[in-house]
């Protein structure tokens, strides 16, 4: 049964400054609300605690995609639809575009935002593994200033993150890669059905092969840990290594050690373990197939 509507105060500040002042004056009182595709689901099912909500949806300061020589910067309110429609993003960040395409379906993609996807901190979210793999940084702003955080380090536990109550996620910056190098982007979402699915296990991985060995490997998983998972053991197992059955086995073993999946309403621990390993295996093959 839905939550009690009259107990949900909500206001829409006219500017980012106004929003930051509100957050700073009453720390912890206001919960930011972006496109609503997560919070409103909780509201309808009665799982959203009543309180005060600050709608950021119409703040122009949090919108827009900016492309410079060395980075692509996306406003926190960039929707999945905007990610999909942006030619440079689609070309250079295909895993982010794939995550956007496979988040919900069209109607969700028109409202769901990258910032919301990050701050909702679901361990099953689709864009965070791509952001981890792409070495994204995020900018948190408050009335008294701003700071950049490496996204890989942002989530510290289940629904726990490196954010103060008066901070707002403003934008996401992704370094651009040397176009002269061959990068293999490997994204796969496994969610029982093709769209409108919450991920059971997912991977975003990138790397390149130079001189016969893997370089600059990043591997991230979703739905196999309390947060989006930067698979450090898997990355280390691959970095600087040449292809072979031994490498595939090492990658599988490393992934097995990286992930800590559980049984839940959507899948089993065994399935998540096995498929995460299979995905790591597939990535290794894809990475070296590119060179071959």
């Amino acid at each position: 049964m839905r939550s009690y509507l009259p107990a949900f105060a909500c206001k829409a500040p006219a500017s980012l400054d106004e929003a930051l002042v509100t957050l700073a004056s009453e720390p912890g009182k206001w919960t930011p609300l972006a496109g609503g595709t997560d919070l409103m689901v909780l509201f309808e099912s009665g799982k959203l605690p009543p309180g005060h909500f600050l709608s950021l949806w119409k703040l122009p300061e949090l919108r827009g995609i900016e492309v410079t020589d060395d980075a692509i910067t996306l406003g926190a309110l960039t929707t999945y639809a905007e990610v999909r429609e942006h030619a440079t993003v689609a070309f250079e960040l295909p895993m982010l575009a794939a995550a956007a395409r496979e988040s919900g379906a069209i109607a969700i993609q028109g409202r769901g935002t990258l910032g919301g996807n990050i701050m909702n901190a679901s361990p099953a979210a689709d864009s965070p593994p791509a952001l981890v793999a792409y070495d994204a940084e995020i900018e948190l702003v408050r009335a008294s200033g701003a700071r950049w955080v490496r996204y890989r380090d942002f989530h510290t536990g289940y629904k726990v993150m490196d954010r103060a109550p008066d901070e707002i996620l403003r934008r996401i910056r992704i370094p651009r890669r040397d176009p002269g190098q061959h990068w293999v982007h490997f994204y796969r979402k496994v969610g029982t059905r093709r769209f409108q699915a919450i991920t059971k296990v997912g991977i975003a991985a990138i790397g390149r092969v130079e001189g016969g060995v893997a370089r600059d490997v990043r591997v991230a998983f979703t739905s196999v840990a309390p947060t989006v998972l930067a698979a450090a053991r898997t990355e280390a197992a691959l970095e600087g290594q040449a292809f072979g059955p031994g490498l595939v086995a090492a990658a599988r073993a490393a992934t097995r050690a990286d992930v800590t999946p559980i049984d839940d309403i959507r899948s089993t621990e065994r399935y998540r373990h096995q498929v995460a390993e299979n995905l790591a295996d597939s990535f290794v093959h894809a990475l070296f197939a590119q060179k071959a």
């Binding site: 107990a7 949900f8 909500c10 605690p49 009543p50 005060h52």
Partner: peptide, 9 residues
């Protein structure tokens, strides 16, 4: 975050 006293206008 929760605030049972919230009253929407």
């Amino acid at each position: 975050m929760s605030d049972a006293e919230a009253r929407a206008e």
